[in-house]
Design a protein around this nucleic acid. Structure first.
Lengths: 124, 124
DNA sequence: TCTTACCTTTACGTTAACGTAAAGAATTTT
DNA sequence: AAAATTCTTTACGTTAACGTAAAGGTAAGA
């Protein structure tokens, strides 16, 4: 029965409470309430983690919601499943492209760094 | 002596001319002019390619400019070089984190897809 | 010559993802 | 009890990265 307050999550993940509430407005989080106060479950916490990971990757909140919803069970309808598989494959294409870009960039940075260092040595 | 018009680059990379001009405003591209008209060199073309790669990775234009400037020679000042190495290492930290996030996301997508497919089979 | 196809600058508009401030309720600490 | 802390909603503000006109210059082709 672990649960979290908004400020606990805010501290743990180093995001503002405003941001967390915003994710709720955008239908990415669904805390329950005790009175007016939001109560976050471990599953909410995982979702927040996933949102922030998506953010680091440059995904929009809409994209993140789509992806996160894919993990959830209870998608029994066949058409829904087919749509999901399609969406997943599209996401994968984007991400594989990103992976490619990323490895190229890292390679470039290696070279740039090596050039800098050798230039430094040449200078003294 | 190959050179490109703005619409040529716009077509090749599938971005608007407005976008290309915007990159110039942001000091990422420096075409020469024939009269009023912009003329892009092969090196401008490469820079544009790098900008778009950065964009796919979610870099800001400021970040991209910083990175692209790292590739350029003529940084003879020692202090400049040290600053560059520092900046490169910072970028690498971010990117390695991104790489990590990315591989986790791809793994998750694999699982989500497998679940979908097996659910489809179970259904018929 | 007139239309078509490019090119230019200037400048206001748009969207996402929050920031920030105001004003107030509830709880906890001193 | 008074003060401090944490919570709430509402709502306007901000920034980046362009979009989208508007208004006009130039050069080729029918």
């Amino acid at each position: 029965m672990t649960q979290y307050s908004i400020s606990q999550l805010s501290n743990e993940f180093d995001v503002s409470t405003r941001t967390i509430r915003h994710y709720e407005d955008m239908r990415l989080l669904f805390p329950t309430r005790r009175g007016q106060t939001r109560i976050y479950s471990p599953s909410d916490r995982v979702r927040l983690k996933l949102i922030l990971r998506g953010k680091r990757l440059g995904l929009s909140l809409d994209d993140s919601r789509e992806i996160i919803d894919m993990y959830e069970p209870g998608k029994t309808n066949v058409d829904q499943l087919k749509k999901l598989i399609d969406a997943i494959q599209n996401q994968r294409i984007k991400l594989v492209q990103q992976l490619d870009d990323l490895s190229m960039l890292l390679k470039d940075l290696d070279e740039a760094e090596a050039n800098c260092i050798s230039a430094l040595k040449a200078d003294g």
